[in-house]
Computed example of a mutant assay.
Amino acid sequence: MDAPGFTASLVAGGVAGAAVDLILFPLDTIKTRLQSPQGFNQAGGFRGIYAGVPSAAIGSFPNAAAFFLTYEYVKSLLHTDSTSHFRPMKHMLAASTGEVVACLIRVPSEVVKQRAQVSASSKTLQIFSTILSEEGIQGLYRGYKSTVLREIPFSLVQFPLWESLKALWSWRRGRVVESWQSAVCGAFAGGFAAAVTTPLDVAKTRIMLAKAGSSTAVGNVLSAMHGVWRSQGLAGLFAGVFPRMAAISMGGFIFLGAYDQTRSLLLEVGRKSP
């Protein structure tokens, strides 16, 4: 990928990610509290729904930038023409690689954010310091495996579907889709992917919120899902599915639309610059 493409992907991904995380933060808080082991009301209900927002604000730009930079770079390495049957595989591999890299930034931010969301009386810096003093750096990366195991299936569904919907819309119109049309495709793809991966998201939340030293804190995704199934059944595994779908559908609209728009503008400016 050339330098303009590198810069455009970096900035566009960061801008889009920060916009989504801050605009839709209340929905994320509600989802986390619905999934928490103590239950929605005990976790804070509708009170303090912006608890943990500093952690999200700090992590969102570099997290999203890292994902899209990796996504575009891997796509550029895997050369396939527009009619190739391997294009969906290219998008799946690029998205999965992007998630593995982005989670190195996302997970520490997510751990601090989620603990703040279910303990609104605690400050973000205080939670960060407590994790470091009690669990060390390893505590900040608790749930890394479960986050990757959630994000890869999510991306395997969302990004090929997004790219396919854009290609179909473009083919029907006879020209490249506009940013708002890309955003509509992103909303549909994100909402669908969110619904089918909710059990993995519940497991990730339980692992991140578990007390240090507990069996859940070990990070076994199947064990966490089995524990939820035994105590709450199917409803527990899909706790928070509607706010998750709403947040990711709206997030997909904002994120992928803002990404396409910002990247196009930056590349256009780059072409016009001497």
Rank of each mutant, 00 (worst) to 15 (best):
79 H>C: 05
96 S>Q: 02
99 E>I: 13
66 A>P: 00
53 V>Y: 02
98 G>D: 14
49 I>E: 02
89 M>C: 03
66 A>W: 00
52 G>F: 06
92 M>D: 02
47 R>T: 13
94 A>S: 15
62 P>T: 04
77 L>A: 13
57 A>H: 09
87 R>Q: 01
98 G>P: 12
74 V>K: 07
58 I>G: 07
98 G>A: 14
53 V>K: 01
74 V>S: 09
47 R>L: 10
64 A>Y: 12
56 A>F: 08
91 H>D: 13
79 H>F: 08
42 Q>F: 12
58 I>M: 14
63 N>F: 09
71 Y>K: 03
55 S>I: 08
74 V>F: 10
74 V>C: 08
103 C>N: 14
66 A>T: 02
44 G>N: 09
41 N>I: 11
61 F>Q: 01
46 F>N: 06
67 F>N: 00
85 H>V: 12
50 Y>C: 03
62 P>I: 04
85 H>E: 06
103 C>K: 05
47 R>G: 10
92 M>L: 11
83 T>P: 06
65 A>S: 06
91 H>G: 02
81 D>F: 06
67 F>E: 00
52 G>T: 05
41 N>W: 07
91 H>N: 15
91 H>E: 13
52 G>V: 03
88 P>A: 02
91 H>R: 04
43 A>W: 07
62 P>W: 01
57 A>V: 08
97 T>P: 09
54 P>G: 07
72 E>L: 05
42 Q>R: 15
71 Y>P: 00
64 A>D: 10
75 K>I: 05
95 A>C: 14
49 I>R: 01
62 P>G: 04
80 T>S: 10
50 Y>K: 03
